[in-house]
Design a binder for these strands. Structure first.
Lengths: 344, 344
DNA sequence: CCGGATCGAGAAAACGCTTTCTCGAGTAGC
DNA sequence: GCTACTCGAGAAAGCGTTTTCTCGATCCGG
């Protein structure tokens, strides 16, 4: 516990002494309570200014029962998608005087739940970003995490808004685009196992395949980063596909880089598409055709939802559903004459 | 104030009642204090488990005078360099049970100082990332921010470790590389005004120019993002330079993209270099020659420094100086026959 | 068998703040 | 001129912990 007094930092008590009033009065002045004599208020303000007094947020939080902080749990801070969400969230929250505490689970889904709980306890609310945990686990802990907003994940637990991108429709749009360009053999470079957004893409592809029985779609194992794409070159070539749907832009970039090393032309030999439309997608060579998701906006929306929950406002429509927009750039083009399997 | 009791959440008091002991004993048990009867301890633990009790971090922070949180202030969260630092910092801090609070100043240097102070008060320490504020201002507020670690910036204020990348040497290495390839006309696409790391690059170039009076170096206005590079195409071409040192990888990527649109070959017509070696640099086409900085490691080191300060250990050597490593990739090549000014 | 040392746990103070409660002083009303 | 009411500010409680203080009980040696 406590040294005799003053932990070095100056507190409300020091101001009170200097101004010759009580703590209570100082607090009242600092919080703009007008039931205090203007002359005294001025004296207090002067004392506070002179001592450069700034209220201790921890004491404040304890008394007020709020921290003016929200938490965000992401599976991988290295992923530009989550960075963008974080950015949007942070900016939006900052405008309302809230700060963001980050918790990176490093894709360890077993830790996620504890991490979320711990983060939540320090904050007034939580954003759970594409959690990898099971539906059952999510549903179980959701109530204890309230106010809670989910991104790219839904739950049966009540009162939890979800912001989700319709990846299923997105991949269908991309696949359609490739088919229109004459590609008859497609390949999908899948994302991480257990990723809900990957499942949505898979479902979308199933729908696509049902609607286009004549199109051949190969499923390939994958991941979510450059290296995944780069290492997938052999598998992609072996598939004989001429139109490749990469899990996201990162994978697509890795793949394009790998194809380039093999001397293959994009889109001359093979068309490549990404997903997300991260800022870099516009500047690859060739510029990447992708499913554009307003990622930063997603973060902003997450804050709005969370804010409504924190303030117990009911007026914010709960959750939201984002449609990716097909962004056609230079990495896709007409299919060549049907290729046979080529060994790289 | 306060409602009668229990704000919904269960507290130490509830556990105490259920276990039939005092708050104090519960606290002792939770904190592994062994001066408590094992039988009672078990009872407390059982009660705690049954109620799913988790200590309130705010109350804990107030009593302990620590928050187990550190803050980081960055000028722009959209910048991959700062993202990487954040990632390294977050990961390293997490391993020691600390969380990271982020504060994005959005390049508004006037806000930086207040932002830093506010963030600091909520945390046990602060990392100030390439602050844009003036030397005087930095030196003035530094003491009130202690424990404080600076990245890419130094200050005369005592007790403030600095982790700085030797951008000056880095650009010199890159410039040398270009000269060795036969380039006699270089151009530097500068970074943001007021950025200390830009100043360091400028100093490095001055040294280079002094050592290479026969090499022509044009200074061009710039910034730190894609668009800066993209928009600089005209200026670059007008300069007649064949070797371009972009402020960082982002600018280089934007520039390459712009050159590509103009039908110019990199490195055939013009060699382009970046700085930082962000993950994307390896995957551009052509892959980007750049000055590689161990950015994530910088974040980790920042935590080590900060931790030493927080724990009041003296054994951590204060600060550090990072040498960029020239990473030669495909975006640089032999100079063509000297070009005359070309209009794009 | 008794006194001093030991030990374990409850009571209470402290962390720094906000807010209710309380009470004295000033003011208006009759 | 005295009561009733208002207003402003100090006292104190409370937020949820940790930790010192205190004290009864146990234990040991003399």
């Amino acid at each position: 516990m406590a040294r005799k007094s003053a932990s070095g930092r100056i507190g409300i008590a020091d101001v009170a002494v200097k101004a010759g009033v009580s703590h209570a009065t100082v607090s009242r002045v600092m919080n703009g309570n007008f039931t205090v004599d203007p002359e005294i208020a001025a004296r207090v303000r002067a004392a506070a200014a002179e001592l450069k007094y700034q209220p201790n947020p921890v004491g404040r939080s304890l008394a007020l029962g709020k921290t003016d902080t929200i938490g965000i749990v992401v599976p991988d801070l290295a992923n530009p998608t989550f960075q963008a969400i974080l950015r949007g969230l942070s900016r939006a929250a900052a405008q309302d005087g809230y700060r963001v505490l980050i918790a990176d689970s490093f894709e360890v889904s077993s830790e996620e739940s504890i991490l979320a709980g711990e983060a939540r306890r320090r904050c007034d609310g939580l954003v759970l970003c594409a959690p990898r945990m099971s539906d059952a686990e999510l549903e179980e802990i959701a109530p204890s995490l309230h106010p809670l907003v989910l991104i790219n994940r839904t739950t049966a637990a009540p009162g939890v808004p979800s912001l989700v991108v319709d990846y299923g429709q997105g991949v269908q749009d991309i696949a359609e685009h490739l088919v229109e360009l004459g590609h008859a053999r497609l390949a999908f470079l899948a994302g991480p196992h257990g990723s809900a957004s990957n499942d949505m893409r898979l479902k979308g592809l199933e729908a696509f395949m049902a609607a286009h029985p004549h199109v051949d779609v190969t499923m390939l194992e994958g991941g979510s980063d450059f290296d995944t794409g780069h290492e997938a070159v052999d598998a992609v070539l072996a598939s004989g596909a001429t139109g490749i749907l990469a899990f996201n832009d990162l994978v697509a970039m890795g793949l394009m880089s790998g194809l380039h090393e093999r001397g293959l032309e994009v889109p001359g030999d093979i068309s490549v598409t990404g997903f997300d439309d991260i800022p870099f997608a516009r500047y690859t060579t060739p510029a990447l055709t992708t499913g554009a998701v307003p990622i930063t906006e997603l973060g902003e929306q997450a804050w709005r939802q969370l804010r409504a929950l924190i303030r117990k406002e009911g007026d914010e429509p709960p959750g939201g559903w984002y449609q990716p927009r097909l962004e056609v750039r230079a990495s896709t083009g007409p299919a060549k004459a049907p290729r046979t399997t080529v060994h790289g």
